[in-house]
Computed example of a mutant assay.
Amino acid sequence: MTITASATRVELLSPAGWSPVCDWDLLVPGRGVAVLLPDGRQAAVFRDGSDRIYAVDNRDPFTGAYVLSRGLIGSTADGRVYVASPLLKQRFDLLTGECLDDEDVRIAVHTARSA
Rank of each mutant, 00 (worst) to 15 (best):
M1G: 08
A5F: 12
A5W: 12
S6C: 10
R9I: 06
V10Q: 01
L12Q: 12
P15Q: 10
A16R: 13
A16W: 08
P20F: 13
V21E: 11
V21L: 14
C22N: 05
D23P: 01
D23A: 06
W24Q: 01
D25W: 01
D25Q: 02
D25M: 00
D25C: 00
L26M: 07
L27C: 07
V28A: 04
V28L: 07
V28Q: 06
P29W: 08
G30M: 08
V33M: 04
V33Y: 03
V35A: 02
V35G: 03
V35T: 02
L36R: 10
L37S: 10
L37W: 09
L37D: 10
P38F: 02
G40H: 03
R41G: 13
Q42H: 14
Q42P: 03
A44I: 01
A44S: 07
A44W: 01
F46T: 02
R47T: 00
R47G: 02
D48Y: 07
G49M: 07
G49H: 13
S50K: 04
D51K: 13
D51A: 15
R52W: 12
R52N: 11
I53Q: 01
Y54K: 00
A55H: 01
A55W: 00
V56A: 04
V56L: 08
V56P: 11
V56D: 03
D57A: 14
N58E: 15
N58H: 14
D60E: 04
D60N: 08
P61V: 03
F62Q: 03
F62Y: 10
F62P: 00
F62H: 03
F62D: 03
T63P: 00
G64P: 08
A65T: 09
A65W: 01
Y66V: 11
V67M: 08
L68H: 06
L68W: 06
S69F: 11
S69K: 03
S69M: 07
L72K: 12
L72H: 13
G74S: 08
G74K: 01
G74Y: 01
S75D: 00
S75H: 04
A77H: 12
D78F: 08
D78G: 02
D78S: 11
D78V: 05
G79D: 10
G79F: 06
G79E: 09
V81H: 06
V81I: 14
V81T: 11
Y82E: 03
V83I: 13
V83P: 13
A84I: 15
A84H: 14
A84G: 15
S85A: 11
P86R: 02
L87S: 04
L88F: 14
L88K: 06
K89L: 02
Q90K: 13
Q90S: 06
F92S: 09
F92L: 13
D93N: 15
D93S: 14
D93W: 13
L94W: 04
L95F: 12
E98A: 15
E98Y: 10
C99T: 15
L100T: 08
D102R: 07
D102Q: 08
V105H: 01
V105I: 15
R106S: 15
I107M: 10
A108D: 13
A108L: 13
A108H: 11
V109P: 11
H110I: 05
H110W: 14
T111E: 15
R113E: 14
R113G: 13
S114W: 09
S114K: 09
S114N: 13
